[in-house]
Design a protein around this nucleic acid. Structure first.
Lengths: 339, 339
DNA sequence: TTGTAGGCGTTATCAG
DNA sequence: CTGATAACGCCTACAA
């Protein structure tokens, strides 16, 4: 079955020391004499010893697993965050355990239970809208927890994100400043973050006295480029005089752009387009699309570093990191003439 | 530290049975009497017992971890594969452990070592170009292994993918049939699969007597939409008379399209564009972009199912699954008039 | 600095 | 069908 895997005691025998010493040489090299340490290392290489993580976990009641819960593996926004996490994890001994909640709080709850049962070293979860049960589990988890993608009061533990509300608010103000009057909102997959963007959008327009509910087009369907084209169609059928669209994300914005090209609607003069997230392709689209840049990879990286710090007993201090956002103005909202 | 987590023996005590019976009720419900089983289940719910995977792994020398090694977490191609894997894993008790090799065989080797040390239930690895050491490890792994994304002889164990070479060959033939004569290749991140696509491309042109090495533009840089625009610029500087481009993937193709729009190059008449993978946005671009559709999500799903089958002692039989590809002809290569 | 001994929570073996 | 009883491989006081 499992032939003769080398174990700690084999190494100990071969090195002429006790198993405990080998264990220490692995965990706390500092408290083992230089000579012994070297001999042990030599034997380990010689024999090709690889520690059994299960045994370690059982004996020490700890693992080197960092659990990460995200709502989607295909959404490039989360892929970017993941990349940041993996980069930061690079070189450390921690492993990433990924859970896909598929935008479901119940699924998140289930996964949390499974993850917690493993005694993870740390946890990264998406957003701040966990179910009450999930929140309770997180609060009494015996490991550091980081909530990412958003900021808010009432963090479970630590937090790194930005305000979607303010991001959308800034983008909408930008549209207003550029002279657009009939500004629409296109939204898909109305998750909590999308909702907050809609709030920011609405507030900006309300303050400017320009809010028209009929210009808000949303759908629970997942966001795609194709959907962006469709939603623009819906919008124009309903309100042909819309002169700008704030898209809930860049996929939609791109779809809108393609649809404009197809319908020969001039961007930005006839219709302004603004996206959200600033995916790489926004800058090279034709015309280049204005968007709200978010720092996704950095968000993942910082989240991991926060965990690391906490695991190394860093001063608990400032547990909330606001990475902000940056409105990137491009041609798609740069009107040559106001009407 | 770790307060008073409920354990198997607690359940056993409360249910008035032995620990062994509780364990059996969990693993092999069939061999436990109905009555006892129900009582145990009741107690489990009551106490909120959650098994410790580490202890289980140690005692049984098995885990429910499926290791997955992919070269990139942000490349949407692999994100799609991942999604397929997660969907298939849904409902099973297996957990996915993701490793990011970053297109490095050495990194892959390292990760493989770590993964193997966990006694995974199964392994999914990308491609067929593992290092000799990796291949050796895989061959003697005590778990089923699936190589994905490609097909080939000499599988380590099982395999599910398609021929990149043939996909590119078919796409190139399509361009030739549509009257294009000066067909270029744009490639980024020249990984093994990209190389094989280039082979298919070259072969098709060679057979048609149209191969011109100067029309092959490649770079090791990672593929992005922006890069697609840049590469087209390079190509046209070098060979202004190119009349079609086969792009190594859809990101590049999109970049090429944008650049054509910018330079007022008519697609498909002045320049034909063909991508690879058929991402969702290809169909909605303007004009819609011809591409080679690949079945990424299905690939992930099948890979997982193959593992499952193998774990359930399915007849080892047919271990190589070729999912094929599908050339999707769209406007970007539909020339209205031949020259 | 190093060794000894006991235990971490489950499963597997073998009786009953 | 159920119950003892040993492992599983490593860690962690406690001693030396």
């Amino acid at each position: 079955m499992k032939p003769n895997r080398i174990k700690l005691s084999d190494v100990a025998d071969a090195a002429g020391v006790s198993a405990a010493t080998v264990s220490r040489a692995l965990r706390n090299p500092d408290i083992v004499s230089q000579k012994v340490r070297e001999r042990i290392q030599f034997v380990i290489d010689e024999l090709g010893y690889v520690p059994d993580p299960a045994a370690r976990a059982l004996a020490s009641a700890r693992t080197d697993v960092i659990g990460v819960l995200i709502p989607s593996v295909t959404n490039s926004v989360f892929a970017d965050v993941l990349r940041g996490i993996y980069s930061a994890a690079e070189g450390t001994s921690y492993r990433i355990q990924l859970g896909n909640t598929r935008y479901s709080v119940l699924e998140e709850e289930k996964l949390l239970k499974v993850f917690l049962s493993q005694r993870p070293a740390g946890l990264i979860v998406t957003g701040i809208d966990q179910s009450a049960a999930s929140r309770a589990m997180l609060l009494k988890a015996e490991c550091p927890v980081v909530q990412i993608m958003e900021t808010g009061d009432r963090p479970v533990d630590m937090m790194v994100g930005f305000s979607h509300r303010e991001g959308a608010f800034a983008a909408t103000c930008h549209l207003i400043e550029n002279g657009y009057k009939r500004i629409a909102f296109l939204g898909a997959r109305m998750d909590p973050r999308t909702q907050r963007r809609l709030e920011g959008f609405s507030q900006a327009l309300r303050e400017a006295g320009l809010l028209d509910e009929r210009l808000i087009v949303t759908t629970p369907r997942p966001s795609t480029v194709t959907l962006g084209s469709e939603l623009l169609g819906e919008l124009l059928a309903r309100a042909p005089d819309a002169d700008a669209v704030f898209c809930n994300n860049d996929d939609l914005a791109l779809g809108v752009l393609f649809e404009c090209q197809r319908r020969r609607i001039a961007v930005p003069d006839e219709l302004g387009i603004c996206g959200f997230n600033d995916l790489e392709m926004m800058a090279v689209a034709n015309p280049a699309i204005t968007s709200v840049r978010t720092f996704r990879e950095e968000m993942g990286g910082r989240a991991f570093e926060l965990l690391l710090g906490s695991l190394n007993g860093a001063p608990v201090g400032e547990g909330i990191v606001d990475l902000g956002f940056e409105l990137v103005r491009r041609e798609s909202t740069r009107r040559s003439a106001l009407n």
